[in-house]
């Protein structure tokens, strides 16, 4: 892929345990998945209606060596074939992060490998490098349970936060609205499905904030949905969950799409990508695809298994960091509030 100098291939082991997936993956040269293993805990957390941190940590300990071994087996590789170990350093659940980090440190130490701590959101963005080469300037819309951010990348490894949510993350709003509609955890995909199948929509507000702002706000929309349900309950009326789902999703999608489009124009980007768990949302995906097709800017969103948490994305971002000379030592620790910092200037 456009590499003119014959260099030795770079094999990176990625490890991810920031929330409720224990994952390990081997990525070649930063863009080619050799193996990608994810042990999901979602079935275990369903009964609690959300991710329980202590339970997540317990499952990570059960799974971590199994997924790393599986990643090596599927790749038909040995530790000595690797060039480095990259692991999610943060943000995430601290107790969950610690398992991947300590496994990564022990593995790196035992096999005398360099170690690199990776930002989880950088990972989500670099999931796209596994699909097609990233071209800069690039605009990334990061949407997940914990994030709603517009990130401008003028170069590889170089991040500028141009907009973020001032209250709830988009995924959080999905979860809360799902609760209002009595949809079991995880409710996001179900809302997407209901909205898709709906023949009508409740008219909920769009929150634009200042006209030149790229920030987002979803708490007002969430309250509007709660009030709508509350008022119906008071009148003894049934709400139509499909219409509510579609009204809610339309509002989220319209604001996300419009702001992403405006930012893409202003910064004259060559590529727009979506990242994070919510980028798997069909409604959002379709709206963004249509908007950017019209605009003539290439838009990409990784396939589902690379949108949700995985270790291939950590290995992909880690490969760029490794090439930039970034290294962590054995004091590497979980940092739940870690900020996204450029590793290239």
């Amino acid at each position: 892929m456009g590499e003119f100098i014959m260099e030795k291939d770079l094999y990176i082991l990625g490890i991810e345990s920031s929330c409720d997936e224990t994952a390990a993956s081997i990525v070649k040269n930063g863009h080619e998945i050799v193996s990608n293993v994810v042990a999901s805990q979602i079935e275990s957390h369903k009964r609690f209606g959300g991710v329980v941190p202590e339970i997540a940590s317990r499952h990570h300990v059960e799974q971590v060596t199994i997924v790393i071994e599986e990643a090596l087996l599927q790749a038909n590789m040995k530790p000595e074939d690797l060039d480095a170990v990259c692991v999610t350093e943060g943000p995430g659940l601290v107790g969950a992060l610690l398992i991947g980090i300590n496994a990564a440190k022990a593995f790196a130490f035992a096999n005398n490998l360099p170690l690199v701590g990776v930002h989880h959101i950088a990972g989500h963005i670099y999931a796209n490098a596994l699909i097609q080469p990233m071209e800069f300037p690039l605009l990334a819309l990061v949407v997940s349970g914990g994030h709603t951010e517009l990130v401008l990348m003028k170069n590889d490894g170089c991040f500028e936060l141009i907009g973020e949510t001032r209250d709830d993350a988009a995924g959080e709003a999905y979860d809360k609205v799902a609760r209002v509609l009595n949809i079991p955890y995880p409710g996001g995909p179900k809302i997407d499905q209901l909205a898709h199948e709906s023949d009508g929509a409740v008219d909920f507000p769009r929150v634009w904030l200042d006209h030149d702002s790229y920030d987002f706000s979803f708490s007002g929309l969430k309250s509007a949905v709660i009030n709508y349900k509350h008022n119906a309950d008071q009148r003894g009326e049934e709400i139509n969950p499909m219409h509510v789902a579609k009204g809610f999703q339309d509002s989220v999608v319209e604001v996300l799409t419009a702001k992403t489009l405006r930012a893409a124009r202003e910064f004259n980007v060559k590529q727009v990508i979506a990242a994070g768990g919510v980028s798997a949302n069909k409604g959002l995906r379709t709206a963004l695809e249509e908007a950017f097709e019209k605009e003539g800017i290439p838009f990409y969103v990784p396939p589902l298994k690379l949108c949700t948490d995985n270790a291939a994305m950590i290995a992909a971002a880690g490969s760029s960091m490794f090439k930039a000379g970034k290294r962590s030592d054995l004091t590497l620790n979980g940092r739940p509030g870690l900020e996204l910092v450029s590793w290239n200037k």
């Binding site: 317990r58 971590v64 060596t65 790393i68 107790g95 610690l98 398992i99 496994a103 022990a106 593995f107």
Partner: peptide
């Protein structure tokens, strides 16, 4: 301590498996 036990066990498991 849940976290303390897990850190020791995670490191010990990983060393045991990879070595």
């Amino acid at each position: 301590s849940y976290t303390g036990v897990r850190i020791g066990v995670t490191i010990a498991k990983t060393l045991s498996w990879t070595l």
